[in-house]
Design a protein around this nucleic acid. Structure first.
Lengths: 160, 160
DNA sequence: TGGGATATCATGGGCGTCAATGGATGGAAG
DNA sequence: CTTCCATCCATTGACGCCCATGATATCCCA
């Protein structure tokens, strides 16, 4: 699996360290990035994080939005300037810088939530709210995902 | 056979483990996915589960619904964040995380229901209710299913 | 055809390993 | 000297691996 999946809530210890879920570390290792690329989410009181794939995506996004312009530099500054590369210690822990903690209102615990190509870090209670809201929104689309209201190809009959 | 078919009710042991029906394991092995991708059903108190095919479907869905919006993050959270990749031990058993057990109200037993391209996991009694209800509805659509009609009574493989 | 031997699968339990966490040590920087 | 940070070690609880059991279905051969 090369996607960030599931959610984990871990403790931030007295020294500000927190364990990164092992499955996330595995994904990061696979895309060959030493550490975690991390920046404040633009939309939420949370942190966006990921590995090389995320960095590439941001670069593409920048080039798309503002090719060869001054504006691009400004955007780049806003995005990259607010970012940090967090190193993972040998026990799989990171230390989240204060500036980022502030943005996400992190104190004693943090929730890692996988979003496929990247993941986010939330204060657990804020996460719950956001999650419920997202779930509700998702059910508006449920016709598309469905409980397998059987695609044509899925018509089943024979047994083994 | 590359479809999830039939119904099995198995026991959840003291350690929270449950055997995945061997025929389901065979299907999973065929589509090349180590483990079971699993998330709470949007419509029911049950779990949706499957292999690589299911993951692909979800990814496509996300790209369809919300390419590059902040909404996409929220939907990704509701989908990937609520999901788990369950590893199958060498005896063919999985451990269903508490969060998922809660959603499906699983305690001592669970029913695996094949739906073709994916399968569901139900609390046995809830499944019975759902099954009867579904059967009633099914008769309304019988015409659509044509010759391939399976009598519901035939669908049970559970040994109890 | 019947009955015993064999294979397969669901299930239970013991045990070693690993992940998450807490704490200690050593060194660099202010 | 004191603070910050990285490495290292210890503890605990969960999980994976392994083996045993029982029940069922399959096969083989007289």
């Amino acid at each position: 699996m090369d996607q960030f999946v599931s959610t984990f809530t871990n403790k931030i210890d007295a020294k500000g360290r927190i364990s990164v879920p092992v499955s996330f570390r595995t994904v990061l290792a696979k895309d060959g990035f030493e550490g975690i690329y991390c920046y404040p989410s633009l939309d939420d009181a949370a942190l966006d994080a990921g590995g090389q794939r995320l960095v590439d995506k941001i670069q593409l996004l920048l080039e798309d939005i503002a090719p060869y312009s001054d504006e691009r530099d400004h955007l780049a500054m806003a995005l990259f300037g607010a970012s940090e590369v967090l190193s993972i210690d040998q026990d799989g822990r990171i230390k989240i810088p204060e500036r980022l903690c502030d943005h996400a209102a992190l104190s004693s615990k943090a929730t890692f939530v996988g979003l496929g190509g990247k993941f986010q870090i939330w204060e657990p209670e804020k996460f719950q709210d956001q999650f419920s809201a997202g779930r509700k929104k998702l059910s508006e689309f449920k016709g598309l995902l469905g409980t397998d209201r059987r695609k044509p190809g899925d018509a089943e009959g024979a047994r083994e």
